[in-house]
C-alpha cells in the first residue's frame, strides 16, 4: 500500500499527474474531433454526391479500422510526413513531433468520425419548420446555422456525445504505446519497476472508472440544464 503514497517512494503523485494527462489528452482529442465533425457533417448532409462520398469514406474507414492501427499510422507516419514537408524548405534534420500532439490528433480523428455521425443524426431530427422559418426571416445560411440550427443540434446531441466522450476517454489508453505518460503508461512504468503489475493495473482501472463516473455525473447535469423548457 505504501507504493501508492505521495512523495519520493510512492507512486501516488505520478499517477495523479498521469490522470490529469489522460484528461488533457481526452479533452484535446474531443475538441479536435469537433473540428473534424463540423467540417464533415455539412459534407455528409450536402446534396453533392462527391462531397457525400468524401464524408462517408472518412466515417466508414475510421469506424471500421482498429484505433491502434490509426495510432500506429500517425505515430510512425506523422514525423516522416512533417520531415518530408520540411525537406522541401531545405531543413533536413530529424524532427520528432510531440507525443501529446500525435496522440491527441489520432484520437481526435477517431472521435471526429463518431461525432460526425452524432451531429448528422441531430440535425436530421431538427424539425423542418425551423429551417424554413429561418429562411423566411431572411437569415443567410451562416447566420441560420449558428443562431438557429447549432444551438438545437447541441442540445439534441448531448446524450450521444456522452457516449463519444466515453469512447474517447477509453481510447486514450492506447496512446500509451507511443510513450506519452498517461494513466496506462505510468502504471506500466510503475509495474515494471516495482514488479507489482496487479496492483498498478487495478489502480489504473479504478482511475478510469472514476473518470467515467465523474464525467457521467457532469454530463447528466448538463443534460438537465439544456433541456429546461422542453
Amino acid at each position: 500500500m505504501e507504493l501508492l503514497l505521495f512523495g519520493e517512494t510512492g507512486w501516488g503523485d505520478e499517477l495523479l499527474i498521469a490522470t490529469l494527462m489522460t484528461l488533457a489528452v481526452s479533452i484535446t482529442a474531443m475538441l479536435i474531433g469537433f473540428v473534424f465533425a463540423l467540417i464533415f457533417t455539412p459534407l455528409k448532409l450536402s446534396k453533392n454526391k462527391f462531397l457525400n462520398l468524401i464524408a462517408n469514406f472518412y466515417t466508414t474507414v475510421i469506424r471500421g479500422v482498429p484505433e491502434l492501427l490509426v495510432i500506429y499510422l500517425f505515430f510512425f507516419g506523422g514525423s516522416s510526413a512533417i520531415m518530408f514537408v520540411a525537406s522541401i524548405f531545405g531543413y533536413n534534420d530529424y524532427i520528432e513531433i510531440n507525443a501529446f500532439l500525435t496522440g491527441a490528433f489520432s484520437i481526435g480523428i477517431i472521435s471526429g468520425a463518431y461525432s460526425t455521425e452524432v451531429f448528422r443524426g441531430a440535425i436530421q431530427s431538427i424539425d423542418k419548420g425551423q429551417f424554413e422559418a429561418s429562411n423566411v426571416l431572411g437569415f443567410n445560411k451562416v447566420t441560420s446555422f449558428f443562431k438557429v440550427i447549432l444551438p438545437q443540434m447541441l442540445r439534441l446531441s448531448i446524450p450521444n456525445l456522452s457516449n463519444v466522450w466515453q469512447i474517447t476517454l477509453k481510447d486514450t489508453s492506447l496512446i500509451s504505446v507511443t510513450g506519452l505518460v498517461e494513466i496506462m503508461r505510468q502504471s506500466y512504468i510503475a509495474a515494471g519497476s516495482t514488479r507489482d503489475p496487479l496492483l498498478f493495473y487495478t489502480v489504473a482501472a479504478v482511475l478510469y472508472l472514476m473518470l467515467t463516473f465523474l464525467s457521467m455525473k457532469f454530463i447528466n447535469k448538463m443534460e438537465i440544464k439544456y433541456n429546461r423548457g422542453y
Binding site: 477509453k170 489508453s173 492506447l174 496506462m184 496487479l198 493495473y201
Partner: peptide, 11 residues
C-alpha cells in the same frame, strides 16, 4: 464497460 479493454488485458 467503464474501463479500457487494454487495462483488462494487462490485468
Amino acid at each position: 464497460r467503464g474501463t479500457p479493454l487494454l487495462v483488462q488485458i494487462f490485468i
